[in-house]
Design a protein around this nucleic acid. Structure first.
Lengths: 367, 367
DNA sequence: CTGTTAGCGCTTTCAT
DNA sequence: ATGAAAGCGCTAACAG
C-alpha cells in the first residue's frame, strides 16, 4: 500500500511569494573608518589588537563594529596575509563509524583553534583521492589530513603535495615511507594482544581474516597475529587475505566448514567479516564462543549489541582526529620550524565480550 | 597486563632531520603572462574559457599552465568576484549514522558541482550552534545547510542569517516557521504507517517513546502515532516524552512493567530507546514480538544485526544530503531569482523485521 | 581578439 | 598613536 510511494518524494512549494534571500551588502573597514572619522588602517589595527593603538580607540572601534554588525572578510584577509584558516581532510568515506568519529574529534580541535574543516571523500578510489587533493589545494587550505583509500597503492600524489610544501598529516591508513607526521593505532600490538587473548582462552586452531596487505593497517594486524601464534607450540593457523566484508567473511568460513576444517577461533581484521563468520557459525549451530571464539576489529557500535556480543578492538577514533588536527595546526602555524616527522601511536583497547569469553562464567545465552 | 598502557600513547620522533615543509612560492597569472608574452587578463580569460579568446591562445595558455603547475588562487578569485565556492553545514554531531550519511550525500553533490563543504558540529547546544554559524559566515561560505540542535528552541539566530541574505537550507530537524528551503522526511506518515503496521499485527496496547515535542520531528512522529491509534476502537495507548536514549527507554519500560502495565507494542522515536525497551523485555523473558512487538526509528545499522532483528524506519539520509546540497547550490547560484521556499519531503521506508512480525511465519528465534 | 586599468577588503611597510 | 599608500591575485569594464 505504501509501496506505491517508496523511492519517490513530493515537492511542496509553499505560497509565500517573497524574495527570500536579498544579498545585503557587507560593511567594510572603510565604512567603519568613515563612521568614526578614522582611517582603515587604524580600524584594522584596532580589530587586530595591535599594540600601538590606544585602548580607547580599540574600545571605540570594537563597539562600533559590534553595533553595525561588521564581520571581517577572511577571504580578503587571507589573500593579503597569505595565511588561511581552513584545513582539509580526505577520507575514504564519511559514513563509517570510525571515520565520522575521527572527523568529530578533528572538527572540535579545529574549531577551538579557529580553523574550519573541509571534508572530502575519496570513496575508496585513487583517482577520486587525487581529485579531492586537487580540490582542497584549489580551496587554498593551509594543510591536509588524509587517510588513504583502499585502492591507493602509490605515494606519488602525496609526494607531489610534500614537494609543493603543503603541510600534511596522515592518519590510520598511511603510506609509512613518506616523511610526514602520522597518527595511527598500534595495530600490531592490538592484533597481537587479541590473538594472545584467544590463545589464553584455550584456542589452538586460529584463522585470521585479513585485509589487503599492501595497506599498512592490515599488514600490521597480520604480523601481530602471526607473531602471537608463532610463540606457541602445537598451534594451527591460517590467514585469509582480503576478507573484510560481511559477505566475504561469511563465504570464507562457510567454505572452510564445507571441507571439514573447524577452527576454534577467528580473529578478523574487520567487525564486518567477523559478523559474517558469526552468522555461518550460528547457522551451523556451533556454540559461540565454546566451539568457536570470534574477535572483530574496530569496535563498531553493533558489536556490543548483537547476540552474543562480539569482542572487538576499539580504535580511539576521536583521539586520532584530535591528534591529527593538533599536529596539522602546529605544522601550519610553524612552517619555518625545522621539524622531524612525528608519529603518534595510540594504543587500541581490546573490548572483551561474550564471543570470546570461554574461561570464566560471563558468557551465556540469555536469549 | 596491557592495562598499563590503556589511555596513554607513545610519541615516536623519527630520526630524519629535515625541514619537511618548505613553502614553495606559487605561480600567478602574471608569471604566466610574462612567460607567454601576454597580459594577465588574457591568461585569466583563457583559463576561464572566455568566448572572445582564440582557440590557439587558450591551448597555449592551458598547456603552459599545466606545465609549470599553475593553480588558480580561489581566494583572490572569490574576493574579486564576490562569489565563493564553499558551502557550510551545521549538524548536531557528525558521528551519528544518520548525520554522517547526510554529509556523505551532500559532499558528493558539492564535489560534483565544484563546491567544498565545511562541517561544523553544534554538539546539541544552542550557543555552539550560534558559534558555528558565526564561524561559517566568517569563512565566507556562500550558503549554509543546517539541522538544528536538540536544545534549539528559538529561531532568532536563523532569522538573523536570513536578514543578512545568507542562503539557507534546513534539513531533518527544522524550524518550520522560517521561510527557508527545507528537506525533510515525512515523519508523520512514517509514524502513522509504523503504528498501523503494529495494529495490523493485532497489537492493542501501544506505547510511544517520543522525543522532546518542541522539535518538529518528534512532534510529527507523535501526531502520526496518535492519529493512527485514534482510528481504532478498543485500543489503549500511552505516550512518554523525551525517551530517546537507550537508558531512558530501558528505564521507562521497566517502570511500566513494575506497576504491572504490559503493553503489547512499542513504537519508539529512536532506535536506541527501542533497544532499551527490547533489553527490558528480554530480561523479563517476554517473547518478542509475540508478547511485545517493537519498532524503532532511524534504521541504525545495528537494528538489522541484533536478535531479534528490529523493525525500524529508514530515513533516506543520503538522499536528504543530496537534496539539501542541490537546493542550496541552486539558491546560491540564482540569488536574484524570486523564489518561494521549497520543501522537499522524502518518504521514509518502514523496514519490517522480526521484532514486529507476528502474523506470518517469518519471525523466529534461530538462536 | 587582446591590452589597460581599476579595485574586491584587507594588512603592512613607511611616514608623520 | 595614526595616516597614506601599496599591493595580495584575480576579474571585468572599457578601450582599441
Amino acid at each position: 500500500m505504501h509501496n506505491f510511494f517508496y523511492f519517490c518524494y513530493y515537492i511542496i512549494i509553499t505560497q509565500l511569494e517573497t524574495r527570500i534571500f536579498d544579498m545585503k551588502k557587507k560593511i567594510t573597514i572603510h565604512d567603519l573608518a568613515k563612521m568614526l572619522n578614522m582611517t582603515a588602517s587604524t580600524i584594522s589595527r584596532a580589530l587586530n589588537d595591535h599594540p600601538k593603538i590606544s585602548q580607547e580607540t580599540k574600545e571605540l572601534v570594537r563597539k562600533k563594529a559590534e553595533e553595525v554588525g561588521y564581520k571581517r572578510n577572511l577571504i580578503a584577509s587571507s589573500l593579503r596575509t597569505g595565511k588561511g584558516t581552513t584545513l582539509g581532510m580526505v577520507v575514504p568515506r564519511i559514513n563509517r563509524d570510525f571515520i565520522s568519529n575521527v572527523i568529530a574529534g578533528a572538527e572540535r580541535i579545529c574549531r577551538e583553534k579557529g580553523y574550519s574543516l573541509i571534508i572530502c571523500q575519496s570513496e575508496e578510489d585513487l583517482e577520486r583521492e587525487r581529485e579531492a587533493l586537487r580540490t582542497l589545494l584549489h580551496s587554498r587550505v593551509s594543510g591536509i589530513m588524509i587517510s588513504i583509500s583502499a585502492k591507493t597503492n602509490t605515494s606519488e600524489h602525496l609526494e607531489t603535495l610534500i614537494k609543493e610544501g603543503v603541510p600534511l598529516v596522515q592518519f590510520d591508513r598511511i603510506r609509512p615511507e613518506l616523511p610526514t607526521h602520522c597518527v595511527v593505532n598500534d595495530n600490531y600490538r592490538a592484533a597481537y594482544e587479541a590473538t594472545q587473548h584467544l590463545i589464553d582462552q584455550g584456542c589452538r586452531y586460529l584463522v585470521h581474516l585479513s585485509g589487503p596487505r599492501y595497506i599498512n593497517i592490515y599488514e600490521e594486524r597480520c604480523r601481530g597475529f602471526i607473531d602471537a601464534v608463532s610463540r606457541v607450540q602445537n598451534i594451527r593457523y591460517e590467514i585469509v587475505e582480503s576478507a573484510i566484508t560481511r559477505e566475504k567473511g561469511y563465504e570464507v568460513i562457510k567454505q572452510m566448514f564445507e571441507i571439514n576444517r573447524y577452527p576454534d577461533a577467528i580473529l578478523a581484521a574487520s567487525d564486518y567479516s567477523a559478523l559474517g563468520a558469526m552468522l555461518v557459525a550460528k547457522e551451523k549451530r556451533l556454540m559461540i564462543p565454546h566451539q568457536i571464539a570470534i574477535v572483530g576489529f574496530a569496535n563498531e557500535p553493533f558489536t556490543a549489541l548483537i547476540n552474543p556480543s562480539m569482542t572487538s578492538i576499539d580504535q580511539k577514533a576521536y583521539e586520532i582526529g584530535e591528534n591529527a588536527a593538533k599536529l596539522l595546526i602546529d605544522t601550519v602555524e610553524n612552517p619555518s620550524k625545522i621539524k622531524k616527522p612525528t608519529k603518534i601511536v595510540l594504543i587500541p583497547q581490546l573490548m572483551i565480550r561474550e564471543s570470546s569469553t570461554i574461561q570464566n562464567g560471563l558468557s551465556d545465552k540469555k536469549n
